[in-house]
Amino acid sequence: MKKLANTGNKLLPWALFIVLTSFWQLVSETDEFIGRLLPSPVDIITTFFRELPVIIPHGVVTLNEALTGFGASIVLALLLAVMMDAFEPLYKALYPLILVSQTVPLIALAPLFLLWFGFGQLPKILIVMLMCFFPVLVSLLDGFKSVDSDLLNLMRSMGAGRVAIFRIVKFPGAMMSFFSGVRIAATYSIMGAVISEWVGGSRGLGVYMIKVKNSFAYDKMFAAILLVVALSMAMFKLTDVVQNMAMPWYRLQQRNTGE
């Protein structure tokens, strides 16, 4: 019975998806003019596969920027979070500044980065880093702070020093929270790269999108969007796979209680 309900839950979004895209298909087919502004799902899929040889090299560039920026932001966030947790004054000084920095519109910074760092991949990677860094850092810091104080006392009563407590209790204890941050960052990463390519550059999905928009080829625009969605989903999945490898106990627990 439970299994049946589970399959139902998995089918439900697909059913809704099919209803919505069918409706979209109908609307697009009613009129040629509408069809040009809003290409039908069938048109988009056809264009997607026809354009694939053109889109893929752009996609590789974008994916490369996204992965580099994403990876670098995780390393940076890990280092900074560990330092901020170890030195309370650093935490107090830095946390509000980092919070405020998140209110700066990155879309406005992107053209400036282009001026400062050129038209290559560097400014794009930096934008991705700025987008991904924050959720990872905050989730890690929250993870460190949320460790049960009785557990810390227990470790202290055993005579464990700060480094041992961090290594044995705090860091593994923050993994759950860390991965929720990483998952958010993973979805941001592709988008960040596309947005930064949008403002300037010679290659990448963002560049491709600007080009096809200027030539009013909206079906190609949607084909590119499709790839952005697929890449973002892949990044999300990748995070899940890494999390399952890093936290085998959690996967077991999910399997036992989630059935």
Partner: peptide, 16 residues
């Protein structure tokens, strides 16, 4: 610290 052991109401086992 480090001489006597202390057990709490919570088991405080590390889930991982």
């Amino acid at each position: 610290t480090g001489r006597v052991s202390y057990m709490y109401q919570k088991d405080l086992l590390l889930p991982w």
